[in-house]
């Protein structure tokens, strides 16, 4: 680093500070008021006035967020896992093989990403009903898989394409079967890409809101965090302290997950995007 405090450095410092404030302020505000005993009575200010855990206790005891968190973890875990597996298989097919209709398949995968989810609420509702999966987390996972797969395939395709073909051929020369090569050469090399795609599947499963609302309808013990929060807000719309505590609870896991995978992410995005 240069130790040069010229006017440009100062300006840059100010810009960075402003940027940090803008990006962090909502999170800060959420967390700080969740600990503020006076947040609900209009007495909050930039710093918490009276520190308290009451809002959190209230959220877990009255709000049932323990259950919601568990449900969301189950849904997110299986969505990430299964979509990772399926996307990997599919992306190998489109990146490594030349076959008839390859371009059509690619265009198809790209196009289905454009479908607005609200459009599918009714038919998917009917579909899930016919599968007898209403009010169950499995139904939700299946739907989220469909939402996260196109993007996952699209991104992984770039990673798979980037694995040098020579490595593969070397494995064949050593007498490995295709399956063997896949496991010992391909899989380790695209692992970072899997991490990057898992972020997106995770976000879908953790944040999605309309389908959770319609597919889980009457079963509040199956609610995921997003609709749990909506229900909680509906009941306590002016109790900002507990509402912010609940918001914090559902945000923290995502933040941890993001920060863990952050370093993998940037490379993944670009290879996925650029190769797109």
């Amino acid at each position: 680093m240069r130790r040069n405090f010229g006017p440009r450095t100062v300006i840059k410092g100010l810009v960075v500070a402003a940027l940090l404030i803008f990006t962090l302020f909502p999170a800060y505000w959420m967390i700080s008021s969740s600990f503020d005993a006076r947040a609900s009575s209009g007495g909050q200010s930039l710093l918490p006035q009276e520190f308290t855990w009451d809002n959190y206790i209230f959220v877990f005891e009255e709000g049932g967020f323990g259950t919601f968190l568990r449900n969301s973890f189950v849904v997110a875990f299986f969505t990430v896992l299964i979509s990772g597996i399926l996307a990997l298989l599919a992306s190998v097919a489109v990146a490594r093989f030349k076959f008839k209709f390859r371009t059509s398949v690619l265009i198809l995968i790209l196009t289905v990403q454009m479908v607005p989810l609200e459009a599918l609420v009714i038919p998917l509702f009917v579909q899930v009903r016919d599968l007898q999966l209403l009010n169950s987390l499995i139904g939700l996972v299946v739907v989220y898989l469909a939402f996260s797969l196109p993007f996952a395939i699209w991104m992984l395709r770039g990673f798979v394409a980037a694995v040098p073909v020579e490595l593969e051929e070397a494995a064949y020369l050593d007498g490995a079967s295709w399956g063997r090569m896949f496991r010992s050469v391909m899989l380790p090399l695209v692992a970072p890409g899997l991490v990057a795609t898992s972020i997106f599947s995770f976000i879908v499963a953790w944040n999605e809101f309309i389908f959770a609302m319609t597919l889980l309808g009457g079963a509040s013990e199956k609610f995921t965090v997003a609709i749990g929060l909506k229900q909680f807000f509906g009941l306590h719309s002016n109790d900002w302290g507990p509402v912010m505590a609940a918001s914090t609870i559902i945000t923290i896991p995502v933040m941890i997950f993001f920060i863990i995978v952050q370093r993998r992410l940037s490379g993944g995005l670009v290879s996925g995007a650029v190769k797109g």
């Binding site: 509702f125 009917v126 009903r129 209403l134 009010n135 609302m213 319609t214 309808g217 009457g218």
Partner: peptide
């Protein structure tokens, strides 16, 4: 909304 979806879904 919940009644409507439940009626539609038979739940």
């Amino acid at each position: 909304d919940r009644f409507v979806t439940a009626i539609a879904g038979g739940t």
